[in-house]
Design a protein around this nucleic acid. Structure first.
Lengths: 363, 363
DNA sequence: CTGTTAGCGCATTCAA
DNA sequence: TTGAATGCGCTAACAG
């Protein structure tokens, strides 16, 4: 039986040609072959061509990336961790825009991008263990997630996106609280006095319903808490109290979820004249709910979203919403990481209220 | 100056603790430490705990993934190559749905997913060289792209998505031609006789305008050509000829691009009573164009899309379109790859025409 | 249950 | 320009 010398290797794949093989077949040193690929200026064009040609003829596929990574200590790849599973991530326009920003920088930089799902914790832990990356960007992962500490354990540079603040780790985000304060103030200035809030999840436990102090105390997602505070800032200043049943939490960022929440809020008596939503998808669901309740937007109820995803401008009526630079957030996150993710890095990106058609003075 | 023994290593990062260090500090063998992490059943719980504890105390971060990859010959990561740049990819609902499918399978399988951008060819070649993956899924990359041959050169398993046919490589796709034939037949049955087509790109050169035989001869994207053929199949059978100026190619899959194309087509005399679009985004742009031209959809003009992305059901009027299982396509691609991407694998997924509100008999 | 041995494939000094 | 030597950090046979 024709058989190669048995190798101490697990992979059943046929042993392939290595740089060494090419070198010896050619009677040159390994260095020379390596240089032919990686440092063309270190040898004569003639020799280089000869090497490459021979390599091709022998079926050499070029330097093995893994071996190079081990040798150089760099993978030229960043890891991106999403919470809530990839299915969620790729359905959420905000997450996609963020991803797009990250990807753009990676692309420009010749850096790979590895997606690490954090849906099932067990799987995620394995992923983090086995992923060959030079650093991580963490998007929307609850502080309490075990993945979080796993990643920190790797000792690799980390950038956090959309975390209020995290001493000792680089972060990028927006002033959620200020943005929401501004949006609410706008509604107050229009004359609104009765408000309802459709909130994103405070904690990754699937809770659905009104949000009271106990609920907020347990918050592991900074975003929801910061935004709610922003709403309150403005309301309190106007002498208005937001009762817990004026705030409906919906863990899922979908139109459907918000639809139901809006129906709950709009059925209260007295009915709120304005709905503050923590995402545009929620806002769209709220518009739909108002519609089916026979309420006109914005005449009977004003609605404000958050994010300013492309859809916000396209729905009818078009959405008044807080614009945040989602793709840019991704870009900055990637840039920060590529620059080493200095622990003191803190980038706050600007937001602005975009007034469109879903807001008006109350009837 | 306190200085470690100089190391033959490029990375300026501080040398970190290795498995070997832990082993010697503990007076056990490297195997034992390795086993403590990878094969808990190979040593006593007691010893294992001792090892892990000591490792932690020493600041050992666990087995280095790259070293493991080199050693095992597996990276447990698949590469996903998109054409047209990531910015495009993450903006295109169809691409995202595909990605979602791929990601879901990877997640389930504990496999990483590395996105390889193929926007700039030079950068992409570098990426392919340096990416540590066990195989590639190629989505929408023109046959003529140099990346294509680079990837084939790696000798790694490859699965092609949405390529008509490719001898010797595993593929997954749909029967574009048949699906379009069916959609067209439906319009014919409604009584339509004058058609316009808004086409996706035939070749990645940015060409915009009517599509004649010369243009089609150069096609490097199978999808556009197959779909156009499908339209023609049905038309020819009905004795109708599609002239080249009844087909407007728009390389960009956006509402805006289609809007313009539709204005061109709907300005022809006689005006087509039906528009066949190769994507839902194109169809939505066409609806918009009809609207601004004062034409009612579907009374004055029927419009058919392709893909059945979520938006298709939500726009008003809701879109009659060809449904294709986008996420499932991604799933199958990933499954095929994980199963070794046998060159003979060919999976054709079912499509179906979803009739909604944008089609009706001609006036 | 534990240790010994032998590389995985490469890039990088340093000397010639 | 080129080559020899070295080890990146780990895992899997295999033997004890």
């Amino acid at each position: 039986m024709v058989q190669q010398k048995s190798r101490n290797q697990a992979s059943p794949a046929a042993r392939s040609v290595t740089l060494k093989d090419v070198a010896s077949a050619l009677g040159v040193s390994r260095t020379t072959v390596s240089n032919a690929y990686n440092r063309p200026d270190q040898l004569s064009d003639e020799l280089r061509d000869k090497v490459i040609l021979k390599a091709k003829a022998m079926g050499y596929r070029g330097p093995n990336p893994v071996a190079r990574q081990l040798r150089t200590g760099r993978t030229a790849t960043v890891g991106l961790v999403f919470s809530g599973g990839l299915t969620f991530a790729f359905e959420d326009p905000a997450a996609i825009a963020f991803l797009q920003g990250v990807a753009a920088v990676c692309e420009r930089n010749g850096t790979g991008l590895t997606i690490v799902p954090a849906e099932q914790e067990s799987a995620a832990e394995i992923m983090v263990r086995q992923a060959a990356v030079d650093g991580y960007i963490i998007y929307c992962l609850p502080r309490t997630s075990p993945i979080f500490s796993r990643i920190l354990d790797t000792g690799l540079p980390v950038v956090l996106a959309d975390y209020g603040d995290f001493p000792g780790i680089a972060t990028v985000g927006i002033d959620d609280r200020g943005a929401c304060r501004e949006a609410t103030q706008y509604l107050l200035d229009l004359g609104h006095r009765r408000f309802g809030v459709i909130a994103l999840e405070f904690s990754a436990d699937g809770y659905t319903g009104p949000v009271g102090v106990e609920r907020r105390a347990l918050a592991t997602f900074d975003t929801a808490e910061a935004r709610l505070r922003g709403y309150e800032d403005a309301l309190v200043r106007a002498g208005i109290t937001l009762t817990s049943d004026a705030v409906e939490e919906r863990p899922e960022n979908s139109e459907t979820a918000a639809y139901e929440a809006a129906r709950v809020l709009l059925s209260r008596n007295p009915r709120p004249t304005a709905l503050l939503c923590m995402s545009d998808r929620h806002a769209v669901g709220a518009i739909h709910a108002a519609d089916t309740l026979g309420l006109k937007v914005p005449d009977d109820v004003s609605i404000v979203g958050f994010d300013d995803v492309p859809m916000a401008a396209h729905v009818r009526p078009s959405l008044t919403t807080v614009h945040q630079p989602l793709a840019e957030k991704g870009q900055v996150a990637a840039e920060l990481l590529l620059a080493g993710a200095h622990p003191d890095s803190r980038r706050l990106l600007p937001t602005r209220l975009v007034v469109r058609e879903t807001t008006a003075p109350p009837a």
